[in-house]
Design a protein around this nucleic acid. Structure first.
Length: 886
RNA sequence: GGGCGAAUAGCUCAGUUGGGAGAGCGCUUCCCUUACAAGGAAGAUGUCGGGGGUUCGAGCCCCUCUUCGCCCACCA
């Protein structure tokens, strides 16, 4: 026994171990991929977390999955590139810095564009790396030498290139539309960035007088202040009530401006009074009505949420103040009919929660129709597969009803739109570098568009821009298309869809064949983990308490195909215990591998098949099945299956049974070498199998075991050896295990303490099997004298024994009058009851002619076998009951 | 309004060509047996959300209802 190994601590301490091996892997450059030829390649460009972010549980799950797949493929011999990076996250980051300078009472406008951007860059340098450091802590084997940022120089070049190409193709156009405007962020945002929340508000009913004084039209609104910008009243063309009024004018109250009554199919005659006020500059539907009827667009609420000059005497008033003032005035004018309580959903900014103001403004748009079609086809014909599959429907529904994409943002942090406008002739010119002269009139009076691009415009290019596009780099050549996208379901539209059409547009190929949408991590109460709600669990905190391996395993174990995952600390604690179990079974194995058996000796010491005993063949058979499950699981994104089968195998089979059975054999010189080899082989193989999920502890153990190679990270991943799988060995071993359980059960019944040995008799037809395994049986069941025989115990003696019956054997424990007869009879009776119930069900089936004629033969055979077993057991129990009672 | 998902032990969840209901945690009893008490052994626990249907046979397939969660659209 090695004295050094005996010093191994009883409790596994992840902290030192994790730091040690992570540094080692980095030094060895194992995470680094070369675009070398000759090796199959595997590439994932990770979803770049926002620079504002710190690791939350969703990230931990996402990147653990990445790392599991990456490590698995690397061990399988692939040239693996997991390319990391961060996203500049336009609004989110700008907001952070705005908050920071707000502490000094400053706004970005006080600082000015240039100064403000300096601040943002400073902020990014200071805080932007947080999440990357945390990913290293998680154990991620990403290629840090290739880390990208969506605003690094090369990436910026790709963004501009993409824009200019699209602009020159005519896919990008400028238009005035009503967009979702956030008065706090001071920018337009896309429909996808608006969150709707139910709000209790009011519905105001207002009388609009007809210009000719012949009466009133009643309209209903949730935003009375917008009436200042009304340019029409619309009714349904089918509405009898307003038949004669279409074409007449309304005298808009307060503003005292005549506006027409128009008919438009958009109006629902059932709602309210059937007449609707039309404010083309402040409502997307009204905007459309306005276009159809050629109505004026009057902007009465400005970009800052303050009423404009167009709002007359309300100019300069906050929009919500103006609402009150307008209502008050209408009331005074006697035009307010009534106010109903009304609950409706109100759009809010997903970044800052401010109520969105629909606002007419000039923006850049991407025409989506032509771009969407190839992206639809790619999913329909299976070039891109969603996992789980149901998300492809969700994707397709959205793509098939897609609207043009507003890509300009009135922010400062982001990719400045590479378009210059000629001050003289109004021409827009897009170019990769500053435009000196107008291409149309030659004027030198060119000014760059002040706006920046939607963050998602740049991240849509991620799978190829990170690999060097637009330059044809060896990396781009080697790693595009990538292999899979692993992401959360809330960005299927925002990001996944856009990457697919941009990949097709610029690379002519889908960016990845698989899109794996993982489960949303919820907290224990089933609520979404959210920092603002205080319902989050900090992954770093869990790593501190239980180690990275434990957190990773806990996440993967639950990473099923469901759409939600509840997560709690106790799971991580449990997997920490699993780690400790692995540690201790490894200590046991190491303590029992002596010098001579280690190193090369073991590899050469592979025993011949006929030297293997039943439990050896059994555990090797089980191991090879697990190898299959793990490979299948990783390959099919059923990683939870892989994780669970490893847990089950290592704990409930290897540790609980094989290791226990090995103990007496290790003391037997004739068997020692064989057992050592099997222990080593199973453990070493298992560590390689488990390594993708628990990289640290497996490296620590593997390095301490005899092994080949410099790191488990680059050791080959186990492949199933079908010849080692044996149904027969598993069936026989099950009988032995069942017999051991039966003896233990009887021991517990007679109250034998674990230290106390008992005698036992096994009556069976399988005498050879039990005799061959007598040593293990005696050891695990703590039996002193074991008799295995075909001869049944005479009825007259049965009262001297406690008995239990298993499949194919009966176990007797001599108790010499210690049996509490009354209690034992009661126990037998209760057991008989359940047996009779099962038997009745069984026999009922078998006597059903329908069943015996229609069910497959093997099912019927199985049922017959069960019936026979139950009958046998029943007979024995009845016999015993009689013996005891007499 | 449309769609998706979930409902299995006290809790969190597994359970695929439909064929004797499982794990972890928790609970009960016994045990520091030389790898491990973060452990070992033995045990209790279920109208598989309700109702109907298909089938010899349904946790699993079909219909329907209920509850919860999510997404999309509209919301004067």
């Amino acid at each position: 026994m090695s004295t050094e190994l005996e010093k191994l601590p009883k409790v596994y301490d992840p902290f030192q171990v994790e730091e040690k091996w992570y540094s080692f892997w980095l030094e060895q450059k194992y995470f680094h991929a070369e675009a070398e030829l000759g090796k199959p390649r595997y590439c994932i460009t990770i979803p770049p977390p926002n620079v504002t972010g710190s690791l939350h549980m969703g990230h931990a799950l996402c990147y653990t999955i990445h790392d599991v797949l990456g490590r698995w493929k690397r061990m399988k011999g692939f040239d693996v590139l997991i390319l990391p990076g961060t996203d500049h996250a336009g609004i989110a980051t700008q907001n952070k810095v705005e908050q920071q300078i707000a502490a000094d009472g400053l706004t970005r406008f006080d600082l000015g564009r240039e100064k403000f951007l300096e601040k943002v860059w400073e902020w990014k340098e200071h805080y932007g790396g947080t999440i990357i450091r945390q990913l290293k802590r998680l154990g991620c084997s990403f290629d840090w030498e290739r880390e990208r940022f969506t605003m690094d120089a090369g990436y910026a070049d790709a963004v501009v290139e993409a824009f200019v190409q699209m602009f020159n193709k005519g896919v990008i156009y400028r238009g005035a539309r009503v967009v979702n405007w956030c008065p706090r962020c001071h920018t337009g945002i896309s429909d996808l960035e608006v969150e709707y929340e139910e709000q209790h508000s009011h519905l105001w009913f207002i009388k609009y007088p007809l210009a000719d004084g012949s009466g009133f039209v009643e309209v209903a609104t949730t935003r009375p202040e917008t009436m200042l910008g009304d340019t029409a009243v619309a009714v349904s063309p089918e509405d009898q009530r307003y038949m004669g009024m279409v074409g007449k004018d309304i005298m808009l109250p307060i503003m005292e401006r005549p506006i027409p009554i128009v008919d438009d199919a958009h109006v629902d005659p059932e709602f309210g009074s059937g007449a609707v006020k039309v404010t083309p500059a402040h409502d997307p539907n009204d905007f459309e009505i306005g276009i159809r009827h050629n109505l004026a667009q009057i902007v009465v609420i400005g970009p800052d949420g303050v009423m404009t000059e167009e709002a007359g005497k309300f100019a300069g008033m906050d929009r919500f103040e103006a609402r009150k003032a307008v209502v008050k005035e209408l009331e005074e004018l006697g035009l307010l009919v009534k106010v109903d309580d009304y609950t409706h959903s109100v759009g809010t900014c997903s970044r800052c929660d401010t109520t969105i103001e629909p606002l007419l403004s000039e923006q850049w748009f991407v025409k989506m129709k032509e771009l969407a079609q190839p992206a639809i086809d790619a999913v329909k014909d299976g070039r891109v597969k969603f996992v789980p599959d149901r998300y492809s429907r969700i994707y397709l529904d959205w793509m098939e009803n897609i609207k043009d994409w507003c890509i300009s943002r009135q922010l400062w942090w982001g990719h400045r739109i590479p378009v210059w406008k000629c001050a003289d002739c109004g021409e827009f010119v897009a170019a990769k570098s500053a435009v000196e002269a107008c291409t149309k009139c030659g004027s030198k009076n060119m000014e760059q568009d002040p706006d920046v691009l939607d963050t998602w415009f740049s991240s849509a290019l991620w799978p190829f821009a990170t690999l060097g596009w637009p330059t044809k780099t060896p990396e781009l050549e080697a790693f595009y298309p990538t292999n899979v996208l692993i992401t959360a379901r809330d960005i299927i539209y925002l990001w996944v869809a856009r990457m697919i059409f941009q990949g097709l547009e610029f690379m002519g190929e889908v960016p990845y064949p698989d899109v794996y949408i993982y489960a949303t991590v919820l907290n224990e109460e089933g609520r979404r983990m959210s920092k603002s709600l205080g319902t989050g669990v900090d992954p770093l905190d869990l790593i501190e308490r239980f180690g990275s391996d434990a957190l990773r395993y806990a996440l993967i174990q639950q990473a099923g195909m469901g759409q939600d995952m509840r997560f709690s600390d106790s799971r991580v604690e449990n997997t920490r215990n699993f780690g400790n179990k692995i540690w201790n079974m490894s200590r046991f194995v190491m303590m029992n591998l002596e010098e001579g058996a280690g190193g090369q000796g073991l590899g050469a010491g592979k025993p011949e098949l006929d030297e293997l005993k039943l439990e050896d063949r059994w555990i090797l058979s089980r191991l090879n099945r697990v190898i299959k499950t793990v490979n299948d699981g990783f390959g099919n994104y059923d990683m939870d299956d892989a994780a669970r089968s490893l847990y089950e195998f290592l704990w409930s089979e290897f540790a609980d049974w094989y290791v226990e059975l090995a103990k007496p054999r290790l003391r037997d010189e004739s068997e020692r070498a064989t057992v050592q080899w099997v222990l080593w082989n199973v453990l070493e193989t298992s560590m390689r199998l488990l390594h993708p999920i628990m990289p640290f502890i497996t490296e620590e153990i593997w390095q301490a075991l005899p092994h080949q190679g410099e790191s488990i990270m680059v050791a080959p991943f186990p492949e199933t050896d079908e010849s080692m799988i044996s149904d027969a060995a598993e069936a026989e071993m099950n009988s032995v295990m069942e017999a051991i359980r039966t003896v233990r059960n009887l021991r517990s019944e007679v109250g034998a303490t674990p230290g106390k040995k008992v005698d036992a008799v096994i009556v069976t037809e399988m005498v050879e099997l039990f005799q061959a395994n007598a040593v293990g049986l005696r050891s695990l069941a703590r039996v002193e004298n074991l008799e295995v025989t075909k001869e049944n115990i005479p009825d007259t003696e049965k009262s001297q024994y406690l008995a239990s019956h298993g499949p194919g054997f009966d176990v007797y424990l001599p108790v010499a009058g210690l049996v509490d007869i009354e209690k034992e009879v009661a126990r037998i009776e209760s057991e008989l009851k359940t047996i009779e119930k099962d038997l009745a069900r069984c026999l009922g089936k078998l006597s059903n002619e329908q069943f015996t004629s229609k069910a497959p033969a093997e099912v019927i055979d199985k049922e017959r076998r069960i019936a026979a077993e139950l009958e046998d057991k029943k007979a024995k129990l009845e016999e015993r009951k009689k013996a005891l009672s007499s």
